[in-house]
Computed example of a mutant assay.
Amino acid sequence: MYVSGMRRMVSACAIAALAGSGILLTAGGASAADPTPVPGPAQQTAPAAPTAEPQGKVVANGGLWVHQEATTASQRLNLLPQGTVAALKCKKTGQNVDGNKLWYKLGAGKPGWVSARYVQNLSPVPYCK
């Protein structure tokens, strides 16, 4: 008799716990609490995510050199392989490269400039301030 009563109590506690968590299964299927949260007086809206930087895709055969300044005469910092999608902070006028005087400053905290002649814009890039 004692074991039977204990089983009923454990079962009742388990059912209460499952019902409180919203995952109690019934013969008709799953029963769950409404997944849509209802805003309360203490609940605040999360701040908006910062806007992503503009991006560009390297289209130069063999890749594109990143330079310290907006000129091919400045120090080369690294090579971006063809097809690389890079964040772009801003653009400015620099050395003319095959008829294009625009250069992009890399974004995402990366140093350097790349010639716009060999970058396909994936979004508008503002001028540097």
Rank of each mutant, 00 (worst) to 15 (best):
G62C: 09
Q44A: 14
H67T: 05
E53R: 04
T26G: 15
I15L: 11
P41L: 08
G22P: 03
A87R: 13
R76I: 08
E53V: 00
V85F: 01
P54D: 10
L18P: 01
Q55W: 00
E53K: 04
L24V: 09
D34R: 12
L80P: 02
A42S: 11
Q68T: 06
Q75E: 15
N61T: 09
G99W: 04
L64R: 05
G62Y: 06
T51Q: 14
G63N: 08
A17P: 00
P37Q: 03
G29P: 03
S74K: 08
E69T: 11
P54I: 10
R7C: 02
A12D: 12
G22C: 07
Q82K: 12
A52Y: 00
S31F: 01
A49L: 13
G63I: 05
N78L: 11
D34Y: 02
G62A: 08
A12S: 14
V10A: 14
T84Y: 01
P47E: 11
G62H: 09
C90T: 12
E69A: 15
A48W: 00
I23A: 05
G83K: 10
T72I: 14
E53G: 06
G94K: 05
I15W: 04
D98H: 11
T45W: 02
N61I: 06
L102H: 09
A14K: 12
A73C: 00
R8I: 05
K89Y: 09
P37D: 05
G62P: 03
N96W: 07
E69I: 02
G29T: 09
T93H: 03
K57Q: 15
G94W: 03
V59Y: 01
L88A: 02
A87E: 10
R76G: 07
L102W: 15
D98E: 14
